[in-house]
């Protein structure tokens, strides 16, 4: 416990961590202030007009669907046949749409919390992922490089305990900060929505969905923190983690993707970590495979999907392998 306390103080005192916190606050401040500056509370007239526009939009959707069905049944009035309709009218069936137009869609210059909270949360998660990776890498990398770990081992000559305490403290610190930042971030925008915008429809489904995205985001933040820590431990330096990440992005996500497309590899996106990250965060992502139906004769669906379960397995597996390797290597390594 004493070791964890000391490590927590050391983590908080690191200049790099403080710099990243300042950047987080800055990004937060800029986003909040521009949102505040570009939003106003809608008047009663604006709300009535938006509701009317939404109702009209829904009515038009019903109308298009009905005419599509009429065309299929041969009931279209003369002159209307030239209008475009999809072959399958279910594509324009309002009941089958993901969401129907609502009044807030037609509020111009108004920040609507219920509509924008999710994308704002994704931005925060992206920052926290970057924060976790960089802080995780520099926390152990700088310590290994500067002799801080050696100093600590002279006091606590138990390598697994020391490295475990460092990782545990780091994860606890990053999780605590992520929770605090998320609460402060969402609360600020909720207040902006209440005071200078429009809160929107905040029912149980909204909060459940937002909580789900938040939970998945936090898991991703912790996984990337472990990845940064493990890569820097293996490479003995912060730059080892940064170099590995940069090399992966350039060599695999760009280079290998290009090669796979050239050689017509089936479903190339499934080999990319970015695809699995997307699948984990959103629950399901669909990809278009141009090569999928080259030899097919009947119906062929070129779309394939990645879901969160295998995505989580891939991300967890990779993190576990690298973390285990880091601990095993650190256990036997000569610290010179």
């Amino acid at each position: 416990m004493k070791l964890v306390r000391a490590e927590l103080e050391r983590l908080g005192a690191r200049r790099f961590v403080q710099l990243m916190l300042v950047l987080l606050v800055l990004a937060f401040g800029v986003t909040a202030s521009t949102t505040l500056a570009g939003s106003h509370q809608p008047t009663a007239a604006e709300l009535i007009e938006a509701r009317n526009q939404a109702a009209e939009s829904r009515r038009q959707m019903d109308d298009v669907y009905q005419r599509c069905v009429d065309r299929v049944n041969g009931n279209l009035p003369p002159g209307a046949e030239e209008e475009y309709f999809p072959a399958d009218c279910s594509e324009v069936d309002p009941v089958r749409q993901e969401r129907l137009p609502v009044a807030t869609d037609f509020l111009s210059g108004v920040f609507v919390f219920s509509q924008q909270a999710e994308s704002l949360l994704y931005f925060l998660i992206a920052f926290l992922v970057l924060f976790g990776f960089l802080v995780g890498a520099s926390y152990i990398g700088a310590d290994l490089n500067s002799g801080g770990v050696v100093n600590l081992l002279l006091w606590r000559p138990k390598r697994m305990t020391v490295l475990g305490a460092k990782l545990g403290t780091l994860l606890g610190g990053v999780l605590g900060l992520s929770l605090l930042a998320s609460v402060a971030y969402l609360a600020t925008f909720w207040v902006i929505g209440q005071a200078a915008g429009f809160p929107g429809h905040l029912d149980g489904v909204f909060w459940r969905d937002l909580g789900s995205v938040h939970g998945r985001g936090l898991v991703l933040v912790l996984l990337t923190t472990v990845l940064g820590f493990a890569l820097a431990t293996l490479g003995r330096h912060t730059s080892a983690a940064l170099g590995t990440a940069a090399a992966y992005l350039v060599v695999w996500e760009l280079g290998a993707r290009l090669v796979m497309e050239i050689v017509d590899t089936a479903h190339p996106d499934r080999f990319m970590l970015s695809s699995h990250v997307g699948a984990w965060l959103t629950g399901r992502v669909e990809f278009w495979d141009a090569t999928a139906c080259a030899t097919a004769t009947g119906f062929c669906d070129r779309v394939y999907a990645l879901t969160w379960q295998p995505a989580l397995a891939v991300l967890l597996g990779l993190t576990a392998v690298l973390a285990t390797a880091a601990f095993l290597v650190f256990r036997r390594r000569d610290l010179i």
Partner: peptide
């Protein structure tokens, strides 16, 4: 201080 904390 940090070393003292870590070492009890």
């Amino acid at each position: 201080r940090l070393l003292a904390l870590a070492g009890g």
